[in-house]
Design a protein around this nucleic acid. Structure first.
Length: 399
DNA sequence: TCTGGGGTCCTAGGACCC
DNA sequence: TCTGGGGTCCTAGGACCC
């Protein structure tokens, strides 16, 4: 039997938090973001959107479109506590909940709505209660899969409720532009439009043709897209709490520079932040990544594996500086970032290490075998090399 | 005064091993 | 005999999302 999955998306979440603190902002064009070098719009109110302001837009450009906009730097601890309120509210209805980001979650409501005669009315009441109790507005998608629920919550904003059964897919999703398909961004959509795929319906048609050429074009994604678009994608709401796989910190410099010493200062404070946050999260990682963005926005990504997983500041910094030294060229750099990757719990490292408690014994035991293996390899190589040489001699002839 | 910062996941090539 | 093949790890880089 089909499940009932909800995707709940908070509308203009950061702005709403600010409005609740300061009601005089309501109905005004509000932008959350930094002003000055590198400042972009994090999010904005619906009023600001009427002027063409969008997330990710440089703030200077946004103020040109909407000079009267009120610009507020983010108050992230406020948003975080409001986000907790939101999740706790939803948990009262169902424990099967997956937080997808600070302002959205998937909920499996199959059990909760089992005996409900009018489930949509129930969901509407839920939406109203959230507004009444927390002041937060949301859009809700209701569907048998996570993908369809996500598309549904996006369909009508703010305070929308959109139900998408499998049979509704052609009516609701097919007319939408290809960019609105979750996972198709600004690099992929022009390619699709070039081959005549302008809407989700166009994509569905191509996929359902089942021809080999389309399969080849989409490669690995083919069957995933097909499941999503036909309404048979995943309906499993993952209740596991979020477990970070990497912790990173990056910053845009006050001005572009290629001075090693200047960048080193940035890299040390970034490394400190990463180390502190990893310790706070009780995580260790075994790879350090350095990101550099130059003045032409070319990004390079260099990483180095550590001997053992750690969150030690000196190790992170030293590794990052080795990477910096190796990769800093003549180009002025505008941004640097340090990331600790492949995070695990320190307990797992202890387990891994304990395997090697008797390392000396093992080493001794293996030494002979290794030696033989190594000799074998060398001989194999030598034999191979001789063979190749002798062949070459035969072919070309040497003195 | 041009274009953030936090992440995740996937791919592909080279090294290395058997 | 005309430079094995399969598996895995490491590294670099790209695309996407919020």
């Amino acid at each position: 039997m089909a499940k009932v999955i909800l995707h709940i998306d908070l509308n203009a979440f950061f702005v709403r938090c600010e409005e609740l603190e300061n009601p005089s902002l309501i109905g005004k064009p509000v932008i959350i973001g930094r002003v000055g070098r590198g400042g972009v719009v994090s999010t904005c109110s619906y009023k600001a959107r009427e002027y063409g302001v969008r997330s990710g837009m440089p703030t200077f450009q946004a103020t040109k479109l909407c000079p009267q906009a009120i610009i507020i730097p983010g108050h992230y601890s406020l948003y975080s506590s409001k986000s907790h309120e939101f999740i706790n509210f939803v948990k009262r209805y169902s424990k099967i909940i997956e937080q997808a980001s600070v302002d959205e979650c998937y909920v499996d409501m199959t059990e909760a709505l089992k005996n409900e005669k009018e489930p949509i009315k129930f969901i509407k009441k839920m939406q109203d209660s959230l507004l009444k109790e927390t002041g937060l507005m949301c859009s809700i998608g209701v569907a048998p899969t996570k993908f369809l629920a996500k598309m549904g919550s996006d369909y009508k904003k703010p305070m929308g409720i959109t139900v998408i059964h499998r049979k509704d897919i052609p009516d609701i999703l097919y007319p939408l532009p290809i960019e609105s398909f979750f996972g198709i961004g600004k690099k992929t959509s022009p390619k699709l439009r070039q081959v005549g795929i302008n809407t989700i319906g166009d994509l569905a048609k191509r996929i359902q043709n089942d021809d080999e050429e389309t399969k080849h074009e989409f490669g690995k994604f083919y069957y995933g897209i097909k499941e999503w678009i036909t309404g048979y994608g995943s309906d499993v709401v993952e209740t596991e709490p979020w477990d970070p796989k990497s912790i990173g910190n990056s910053t845009t410099f006050k001005y572009d520079t290629n001075s090693f010493d200047e960048i080193k200062e940035y890299v040390s404070s970034l490394s400190k932040e990463v180390s502190d946050r990893a310790k706070e999260a009780n995580k260790v990682g075994d790879s350090v990544q350095l990101v550099l963005k130059d003045n032409e926005f070319k990004v390079i990504n260099r990483s180095k594996k550590l001997a053992k997983a750690t969150n030690d500041y000196d190790t992170i910094l030293t590794t990052a500086l080795i990477l910096l030294e190796k990769n800093l060229g003549d180009k002025p750099i505008r941004l640097a970032g340090v990331t600790l990757q492949n995070l695990i719990d320190p307990a797992e490292v202890v387990e891994q290490m304990s395997i090697f408690d008797n390392f000396d014994e093992i080493k001794e035991e293996c030494a002979t075998k290794l030696l033989i293996a190594e000799l074998n390899r060398k001989m194999k190589k030598a034999v191979f090399k001789t063979a190749v040489e002798s062949l070459r001699d035969k072919k070309y002839g040497t003195e």
